[in-house]
């Protein structure tokens, strides 16, 4: 029964990883860009939601908000931050010499954003954890001896809804077709009449939205937020994305859930200190044996950055 409880916890923790891994997989699958700003934006959205609930907006524009409004505010901030990243990593970058490391420019730029977001939040709200109080936190279900909290169920349902709607967006809509054509070949997409400069921000809006939702799920589920959560939680979603296969939506869901399960199982079996080595060791093994992941395509991530 204890094992079943761990499985339940793992699946529900996996819901957070699935949402962040989706953000990673979108930018890497379509733009071939490993966006290191995703974990800090996840952290940023949760921290701003907490700050909005606690203090309200600065200069007395708005007092302390109720928790739902605060979460929505956090998501909006995440989307704006993601659009800022798009402006300065993608839009104005010039290619001058075309040497081997030059294609890593967006990646390096995203490392710069990581420093700014992380240290900005650290300075504004410190490094200690803050409590995020919601009425949902105390509600729970008992299913044959397994204890499941209501926010966990809701967040899993939310993650599934996101995956299905994202899949619908990419497969059925006009924007989705434009996105897939950019993933295939940006130059050809431009020649075929896709307005690449206007479609690329859509990816970053989706990325920000996903990070914001993941941040809200985390804040409601665990009842606390802290400035290190991007490093500790967000980065593990990278492992989930690679395990599932870069650029694959269904890969992100399987990989994210798998990482959640592996994490809770290794805590249960070997203790909390082993999580980091187990998760990242698994990723290393996957990269050596099957770099394209479980559901990955060969064509994605094979070019330069």
């Amino acid at each position: 029964m204890l094992i079943l409880q761990q499985v339940a916890n793992g699946v529900l923790l996996g819901a957070i990883y699935v949402t962040i891994a989706l953000a990673f997989t979108l930018t890497i699958g379509i733009l071939n860009f490993l966006n290191f700003t995703i974990p800090p934006i996840f952290m940023l959205s949760a921290m701003t939601a907490w700050a909005a609930a606690q203090f309200g907006l600065p200069f007395g524009i708005f007092g302390p908000m109720p928790w739902t409004v605060a979460l929505a505010f956090g998501i909006v901030v995440a989307i704006l931050a993601s659009l800022l990243v798009e402006r300065l990593t993608f839009r104005y970058l010039k290619v001058r010499y075309g040497d081997a490391t030059e294609h890593a420019i967006p990646l390096v730029s995203s490392l710069g954003f990581l420093l700014v977001f992380q240290n900005g939040i650290r300075m504004a709200y410190g490094t200690e954890p803050h409590r995020f109080i919601t009425p949902l936190g105390d509600m729970s279900l008992h299913l044959g001896g397994i204890f499941i909290s209501l926010p966990q169920v809701l967040s899993l349902a939310l993650a599934l809804i996101i995956v299905f709607s994202l899949s619908y967006l990419l497969k059925r809509t006009r924007t989705g077709r434009a996105l897939r054509s950019i993933a295939e070949n940006p130059d050809a997409a431009l020649l075929m009449g896709v307005d690449v400069a206007r479609i690329v921000p859509v990816i970053f809006i989706l990325t920000g939205l996903l990070c914001g939702i993941a941040g809200s799920i985390f804040a409601v589920n665990y009842g606390q937020v802290y400035s290190g959560m991007g490093d500790e939680v967000g980065n593990k979603a990278i492992a989930g994305m690679v395990l599932g296969g870069m650029g694959s939506i269904w890969g992100a869901i399987v990989g994210g859930l798998l990482i959640g399960l592996v994490e809770t199982m290794s805590i249960y079996l070997f203790g909390g200190d082993t999580v980091q080595s187990v998760v990242w060791g698994l990723l290393l093994v996957a990269l050596v044996l099957r770099p394209e992941g479980l559901f990955g395509h060969h064509g994605i991530g094979k070019g330069k950055f």
Partner: peptide, 18 residues
Amino acid sequence: SVYLVLATFAFGQFLTGV
């Protein structure tokens, strides 16, 4: 390319974890 970046990153995290 991007796999190498990921692998070096994962190696760093793995080693400190060990």
